[in-house]
Amino acid sequence: MSNILDIRDLCVSYGKVEALHHINLKVAAGRIVTVIGPNGAGKTTMLSAVMGLLPSKGEIEFMGEVQRAIEVEHLVAMGMTLVPEKRELFGEMSVEDNLLLGAFQRYRSGERDQAQTMEEVFRTFPRLRERRVQLAGTLSGGERQMLAVGRALMARPRLLMLDEPSLGLAPLIVREIFHIIADLKKTGVAILLVEQNARAALQIADYGYVLETGSIALEGDSRQLADDPRVVETYLGLGGRQKTA
């Protein structure tokens, strides 16, 4: 099976401090891969580095091409999109304009089927159709997340990277979002899902990595990981308590 994304030996430093150490990670075509781990493990840093928002060392191969001078715009044009943790919507613009801008790179390269893509996005997120003329800044938390994902889909990505889509959302909305992510897989897009909500993420993923203090601590088939007691330890530090007790 071919890999859409192949990260080899990725290291990221802030100043003199290394935040990510020698990360190796693969995402196969059409698969959902999740990276879980507690707060501050370096999950967001990893996505930012892959997307070219942060300088990094190591090798990033996307669509079979090793990326040398990583430029965000170039990666977007090649089919990589990131839905960031903070959503980064254009708050003072309408839902429709936000979506249109999601297809900016495709528009630049001459594609003019934005109306059709938007129709598909509306079919996935009917709520957005109702809100199409509303300003993005006035949406509720769940709707914002839907808009952020919908905007990314407008680019017809080959690889969709999601940073904590469940962050700050109520459980019911989280469930809806995860169902949609699982459905997206059927359209053939590969998904790299970074989550703190480990159980939900492992339920829809095919493969998982556990990131802990900047390194991959565990990896494996998501069903095996879900049952691994070490995952619980990573989150709640039960191991430590047993040691001290």
Binding site: P38, N39, G40, Y235, L236, G237, L238, G239, G240, R241, K243, T244
Partner: peptide, 9 residues
């Protein structure tokens, strides 16, 4: 704090 070992101890 996020380090649970640290907090709990």
């Amino acid at each position: 704090e996020h380090d649970m070992d640290f907090v709990m101890g």
